[in-house]
Amino acid sequence: MVDNFADRNGRPGVSLPEHLAIIDAVCAHDPEAAEQAARAHLRSVIKTLLTLPAAGDRPASRRPPGRTATG
């Protein structure tokens, strides 16, 4: 699991407008635009997740307390 993902890698500045686009489309009763905005947001999240090191590759100080690289 990625700890504090939403607070890292500039995500707040990326995710907020993506979330607002989803909300705007829902409020406008535009399901196609809502789906398009949601899919764009998920692609953005996945792209960022793929750039992060694997949990076992993180320094111990970045792992959740009590967790090791193998569990």
Results as ranks from 00 to 15, higher is better:
M1D: 05
V2A: 02
N4H: 13
N4C: 09
A6K: 02
D7T: 08
R8T: 15
R8I: 01
R8W: 02
N9Y: 08
G10H: 00
G10D: 07
G13C: 03
V14G: 02
V14L: 04
E18A: 11
L20A: 12
I22A: 02
I22E: 13
A25I: 11
C27N: 09
C27Q: 07
A28I: 14
H29R: 01
D30T: 03
P31Q: 07
E32S: 03
A33Q: 10
A33N: 07
A34D: 12
A37T: 11
A38C: 06
A38G: 09
R39C: 03
A40C: 04
A40G: 07
H41I: 05
L42S: 11
R43Y: 11
R43E: 12
R43Q: 12
S44L: 13
I46K: 08
I46M: 02
K47L: 14
K47D: 15
T48A: 08
L49G: 01
L49V: 04
L49P: 00
T51R: 01
L52S: 00
L52H: 00
A54S: 08
A54T: 13
A55W: 13
A55R: 11
G56L: 07
G56Y: 04
D57V: 03
P59D: 13
A60E: 15
A60V: 15
R62W: 13
R62D: 15
R63D: 09
P64S: 07
P65M: 04
P65A: 05
A69P: 08
T70S: 11
G71F: 07
